[in-house]
Nucleic acid binder design. Structure first.
Lengths: 86, 86
DNA sequence: GCGTTATGTTGTATAAATACAATATTTCTC
DNA sequence: GAGAAATATTGTATTTATACAACATAACGC
């Protein structure tokens, strides 16, 4: 299967929560360097790991991960002129 | 990472749609035997593949996959006495 | 019952995710 | 500016997901 690189908001969400990669890694049960790989989009999490991340942030998987580039959460919340067209 | 086996509703949803594994496999871009492995829960899909399945069925990932055993969709829809207890 | 299609099983091969160590660099605190 | 903590980078090893082939069995149409 040709794997698509997915986009994610892990970095922003993590910083909002004020936790380091090391802390987040311990919580979700992976190596702290794995969090780095995920944040940089160097590879996709397994579905199981995606669920753990989703559970920790209290957000649905689709809010954190996406097949299409993600806009800043701020724009997501208040909307931008652009989205009226689409 | 110790991977949890996830539960899913691929088989029921596929049968509802009246498609064979082979057909579903072609649509989501995997080998038809891979669909078998997923339906039997022998391994979890990648997050990318979960997204494709989600897109095909038009349902959020959380509706198709779960960390906890899934009840039949019929019960999910109409509720059962049990769920009142919490 | 025969042929076809769907599914299950087993085995091997490759690709992708994850772990882990070591080191470099950046950032934060004092 | 020294020291600590956070992040990035590189390299190797292991586990898990996926592909593919071959064959067995089950279900279905005629």
């Amino acid at each position: 299967m040709k794997t698509r690189k997915l986009h994610n908001r892990i970095a922003v969400l993590r910083q909002e929560r004020g936790v380091s990669r090391k802390e987040l890694a311990e919580i979700i049960g992976v190596n702290f360097q794995t969090v780095g790989y995920l944040e940089r989009g160097e590879y996709n999490p397994s579905l199981d790991l995606a669920f753990r991340i989703s559970e920790y942030f209290g957000l649905p998987i689709e809010t954190i991960f996406s097949t299409k580039p993600l806009r800043p959460l701020s724009q997501e919340l208040y909307g931008s002129r652009d989205e009226e067209g689409g």
